[in-house]
Each structure stands twice: as C-alpha cells, then as structure tokens.
C-alpha cells in the first residue's frame, strides 16, 4: 500500500509539485489550484509539503453533507464524487491537515487522489523530497537510520 511520504529535509520549496498538480488536476498553472500545498516555515528555514493522508476513517467523510467522500474498496484511497459537491466547505474544517482544498474555479472542495496510483508530483519532484512508497518501508528506513546512529555511537564509545 503505497502512499506519499515526505522527506522534510530534502524539500527546498521549489513548488514544482504544486504547479504539476494544478496542471494535471485543474488544467491551470498556479499553486492555488494544487491539491498538494507547501507550507513555508520561514523562521525554521523549512518547507514541508502537505497532502491528503488518505486516513482509514477520514474525518472529512463524516462531515460531508452530501455523502460524496468514500474509501475506495481496493486501494483504500479517499476519493470524492466531486460533481455532487455543493461547496459547503465543511470538510475543510474537518481535515486536521488542511488537505481538503478549495477549488475556486469550480467552487468545490477537492483532495489528492494520488493520480490513480502514479502521483505526478512525486514523478516531477526534483529533490526527492516526495517519495511514493510503502508506509512500512518508510518506517523500516527510519529504523535503519536510527539503528545506524546507535552502532556508530557504540563503536566510538567502546573501541576508543
């Protein structure tokens, strides 16, 4: 089960993911239409892409007054029947990650659909900050890093 995993340190905030997303998904070339948003944390010098997490029990699904948000039974993506959206924007508040995005053109709310399995933002990310990978693989990777640190520390402490 692959999802978009963010490597915060690698993101330089170029914004290509937003532009690519707006081009593929809205036919526009402007970050306002993107479903992935880069949060700029200027005081820390950080740029963090934020995108739909495809929760198992999505809060947005509960809040949708038109019941148009659903979990795809095969892929477990959180998807929408956008043509029924009346633009009440309740899901925007329900989403803790601000990943439900207001589309000002069609006056509906949209979210990332992972481009059906090949997310274009990941394909075009020049720095490798966005990775499309299995979530447990991501945990494995992090665990390896943490363990590597420990071994490094241990070898320093005991051999010297």
């Amino acid at each position: 089960m692959k999802r978009i995993v963010v490597n915060t340190e690698a993101c330089d905030g170029c914004g290509i993911c937003q532009l690519v997303c707006s081009a593929y998904k809205a036919g526009q070339w402007h970050p306002a239409f993107a479903r992935i948003k880069i949060k700029q944390l200027q005081e820390f010098g950080l740029n963090v892409p934020v995108v739909c997490m495809h929760c198992t029990y999505p809060p947005c699904e509960i809040f949708c007054v038109m019941n148009l948000i659903y979990k795809d039974p095969d892929t477990a993506y959180t998807l929408r029947n956008v043509e029924r959206c009346i633009g009440c924007r309740a899901c925007e508040i329900a989403c803790p990650f601000s990943a439900a995005v207001w589309d000002p053109l069609n006056e509906v709310v949209v979210n990332c659909d992972l481009c059906g399995g090949t997310p274009e933002c990941v394909n075009h990310c020049p720095t490798g900050a966005l990775i499309f990978m299995d979530i447990s693989e991501a945990a494995d990777k992090k665990r390896r890093e943490a363990a590597g640190l420990r071994i490094l520390e241990a070898s320093r402490g005991f051999s010297e």
Partner: peptide, 13 residues
Amino acid sequence: IGCRQCVQACPFG
C-alpha cells in the same frame, strides 16, 4: 483514524 502521521513523526521508525 489511520492517518499515519505518527509513523512519519516517530524518529525511531
């Protein structure tokens, strides 16, 4: 709710 934020946040994986 299964948002996997904790998986991304845990420094030890």
